[in-house]
Design a protein around this nucleic acid. Structure first.
Lengths: 138, 138
DNA sequence: CCAAAATACGTGTATATGCTCCTAAATATG
DNA sequence: CATATTTAGGAGCATATACACGTATTTTGG
């Protein structure tokens, strides 16, 4: 099964995630959490389901992943105008953490791009994006 | 952060894993479990740490992922000659499940390759492999 | 306007992932 | 040969992921 698409993706994801987790450790957050902070930052007051669709992530997964960020006081979850929804926004503290994390993220991202080679990296990202587009109906 | 390597990998992995999970559902196993059965099948009596390194997976993660497979009677875990180690092998039942799952795997794998386009897929797999090689010291 | 359908969300359950700390066995070192 | 070090593995803890089922709110259809 050396050529299983799923296996190879998951394996590469493990390797890369460990690198990003390690790089973000000084900021006290995981790669996934950094992603969430950044995603919320660029879409203040987004609803949970809406964000989960953008991230190609199950709604309940997002809800649970938000939990530690709420506990740390980085993300605020409020009832939306539509009372069925909950809207997400960063606290001042959350914005500060994101700002600091961004520095470390840039560093590890640059390192990865350099290690893979710029053109390889570009092709990889293109392929990942198009994979998501083609496989994810939303 | 639209261009974050980690985010894009994880996102694509979620999309692809859901597809493979769905395809393997009739066999009662998840994509990850299929991978483990196949990996053990091709390396009978491999030790836990050795397999974990090959899969670029934390040793403790592998141990835990084996648990449901043991419970279902598909994988046997025995003490190795070196009494520190535990060796892994498929039971008869495990081999049967793998055989059936392989049919479904081939189908979904073909579908993904077709959807992405054969040459895109090949480039993607190459890039994933080389990413792992370059980032994983082992 | 009211009942049915659709939408947004949470909880329970289960697997997936990795770090830290601990124990047991094998190996290296003096 | 005895002890120190290395190696293999487990358990506790925390996050990541998604499905099934249930509840509340909004929208739709008559």
């Amino acid at each position: 099964m050396q050529n299983c698409t799923c296996f190879n993706l998951r394996k590469a994801t493990r390797a890369v995630t460990q690198l990003f987790d390690e790089a973000l450790k000084p900021c006290g957050l995981f790669a996934t959490q950094f992603t969430l902070l950044a995603a919320i930052s660029s879409r203040e007051n987004v609803a949970i389901t809406e964000l989960s669709k953008a991230l190609v992530m199950d709604r309940t997964t997002l809800t649970r992943n938000l939990k530690p960020l709420q506990k740390l006081g980085w993300v605020e979850v409020l009832q939306g105008e539509d009372k069925r929804t909950k809207t997400l926004s960063l606290t001042r503290s959350g914005k500060n953490v994101l700002k600091k994390a961004m520095i470390h993220w840039k560093k590890v991202q640059r390192q990865v791009v350099k290690t893979l080679g710029n053109s390889n990296w570009e092709v990889l990202l293109d392929n990942l994006s198009s994979t998501v587009k083609k496989l994810n109906p939303y």
